[in-house]
Design a protein around this nucleic acid. Structure first.
Lengths: 270, 270
DNA sequence: TTATGTTATAATCATAGTGTTAATAAGAGA
DNA sequence: TCTCTTATTAACACTATGATTATAACATAA
C-alpha cells in the first residue's frame, strides 16, 4: 500500500511549485437611497471585490484573498484577510469549497479554499480600503446558464456560466465559465457557487441574522430574503416561518410616513 | 496590495514542505444476515476504512486516500483513488471539506480535501483489496458530544467528539477529538462531519438513490433512510415523501414469507 | 387445504403547516 | 380631518404530515 507515502522523487521536486490560498466571498445587504424625491430606499444584495494591481490579471477584479502563510491554518488565513479588509473581528465565516484545478493560476499551482463571510454593511462605516468596492448582484438563471451582473454604480461586470447537471458522479451542478471579461482567475465560478450555497442555506438555517443589525423590522428581514433569493415573498407566509426565530422588542421604527413597525431581534436561545 | 504575491523568500523556502491530499468517505448500506434461524437480514450503514502499514500511524485505521499528484486535479485524484479501491467508475463523488490545520500530519504540512462517495455495496462483489474493510457505523449524540462506534465484526473502533456551537463565527459546529485510539490523523473529525453532511443531504436531495440498486422495494429504501438517520420512520409518511421520486415497475419481490413487495426505480425525469 | 405469522400497502382521520386574499391599524403629511 | 402608505393580523381554503387502523398476499406449518 502506498497510501500517504510519497511515491517518487518527482513528487518532492514538484512540491515547491504548490501554494494554498483562500478567497473570501464577503456578502452583505444594504440600503441604497434611490431617489431624493421620495425616500425610496431599496435593498441590494452585494459582494465585495478588489481591483488587482499586479500580475496576473492586473486591472481585473477579484475576490479578496491571499496566500496561506507557512504555519498558518487555512481558516486563520481567511480570518486574517477578512479582518484586514474590514477591521471587524466577529464576522460570520464559513468554508465553502476548494478549487484544485491545476492551471487556475498562471504563476504556479495554487489550490484555493473559498470562504463565505456574512456581514451587516452598516458596521463597516466606509472603513474599507480604496481598492475594494461593493458590487450589487443580479442573477438570472435558466436551465442551462446563469447570467450574473455585478454593479458598483461605476462599472458593470457581466459573466455567463454554463450549468450542467452531472448525474450520479459529482456535486449537483458542474459550472463552466462561458463569458467573462473583467474577473480574474476562476472567480466567476466561486461567486456563482457561493451565491447558490447562500440561497440554499437561507432556507434551512438562521444564517441571515449575521447580515442583520441587532434590531430590525420584519419587513427589513423579509427584504433581505427577497433580495438574496431574487423573488418576492408573501408577507403572512414569511412571518409565520420566521415567527419563532425572532423576538419582539418594545421599540418601534417611526418616520416612514406610514404605520410604524415593531423592532425585532434574533432569538438565540432556541 | 500584496494579494496573490509571494511576500518573501520564506514563503518559497517553506513551500517544499507542503502537500495536498484527499481522503474519501466511502459510504454504503448493506444487508447482513443476522441469524439463520429466521432470515432476519438487517441493514447497516457502513464506511470503508484502510489499515495503515507505514509511518505515520502504522497499524491504525484510516480513510482511503492519498496525495494529489503534481499536475492532477484534486477531484481527479479522489476519483483515481476511488477507482483504485473499488474498480468501479461511475460512483457518486462529492467534495465535502478541506482540513488545513498545520500539524495534522507529522511528516509535513498536508492539506486534505475530503470527499464523500456513495455506493451500492452489491456492486462491489468483494472486489475490495485485503487491507480494506467495511465498518458498520453506530452514532449516539447528545448536546455536547458525539460517540461513534465502528465495527467490522472483528474489531471495534470507538471515538468521542466534542461538539461546540460556535455562534456567528464559523460553521455550525466545531468538532474536537476527545477520545480516539485506533484512527489515524484527524480522521475522526472527517468521519463525523461527513456523516452529518450525509444525514442533512438525505432530507433535501435525492442522494440516497446512489446507494440503491436499480430496482428496490419501498421498505428497503425506507430502511436505508432509517439506518443512516438512526431512527425509525413511519411508513405512510415516508411513502408520501418519496412517492414522486420513484416509479413503480411491474416486478415484485416474493419469497419473504409475507406479502410480496412492488419493485420501484428512481424516477430521473423530474 | 386451511390457519397463522409476517410484512406490504392503502385508507382514514386529525392536526399542523402553507398560499392567498382581504381587512384593519397607525404614523406622516397635506 | 383626510389621504397615502406600509405594517400587521384575520380568515379561509388547501396541502402536507403524524398516527392509527384496516386490508392484502405470500410462506410456512398444522
Amino acid at each position: 500500500m502506498k497510501k500517504y507515502k510519497i511515491k517518487d522523487d518527482n513528487d518532492l521536486k514538484e512540491c515547491e511549485k504548490l501554494s494554498i490560498s483562500t478567497d473570501i466571498l464577503i456578502f452583505s445587504v444594504s440600503d441604497e437611497i434611490q431617489s431624493n424625491y421620495r425616500k425610496l430606499n431599496k435593498k441590494h444584495f452585494s459582494v465585495l471585490l478588489a481591483k488587482r494591481d499586479t500580475y496576473p490579471f492586473e486591472g481585473k477584479w477579484c475576490l479578496p484573498g491571499g496566500f496561506v502563510k507557512p504555519g498558518e491554518d487555512i481558516e486563520d488565513a481567511a480570518r486574517r484577510i477578512l479582518v484586514d479588509k474590514t477591521n471587524i473581528h466577529d464576522i460570520y465565516l464559513e468554508q465553502l469549497y476548494t478549487y484544485g484545478e491545476v492551471n487556475r493560476d498562471p504563476r504556479m499551482r495554487v489550490v484555493s479554499t473559498s470562504y463565505m463571510a456574512l456581514i451587516d454593511k452598516n458596521r463597516l462605516n466606509d472603513k474599507i480600503s480604496n481598492n475594494l468596492s461593493w458590487f450589487n448582484i443580479a442573477v438570472t438563471e435558466d436551465e442551462k446558464t446563469i447570467n450574473v451582473t455585478l454593479d458598483n454604480n461605476n462599472e458593470e461586470i457581466k459573466f455567463k456560466i454554463a450549468k450542467t447537471l452531472k448525474e450520479k458522479t459529482t456535486d449537483r451542478y458542474k459550472y463552466k465559465i462561458l463569458e467573462n471579461d473583467k474577473l480574474a482567475f476562476d472567480h466567476p465560478l466561486i461567486i456563482v457557487s457561493g451565491i447558490s450555497r447562500l440561497k440554499n442555506k437561507l432556507e434551512y438555517t438562521d444564517i441571515v441574522f449575521n447580515m442583520m443589525p441587532k434590531y430590525f423590522t420584519l419587513s427589513e428581514l423579509q427584504q433581505v430574503y427577497e433580495v438574496i433569493l431574487g423573488k418576492k415573498l408573501l408577507d403572512p407566509a414569511f412571518r409565520r416561518i420566521i415567527a419563532n426565530k425572532v423576538e419582539k422588542t418594545n421599540e418601534m421604527r417611526t418616520g416612514g410616513g406610514h404605520r410604524p413597525s415593531i423592532l425585532y431581534k434574533y432569538k438565540t436561545t432556541n
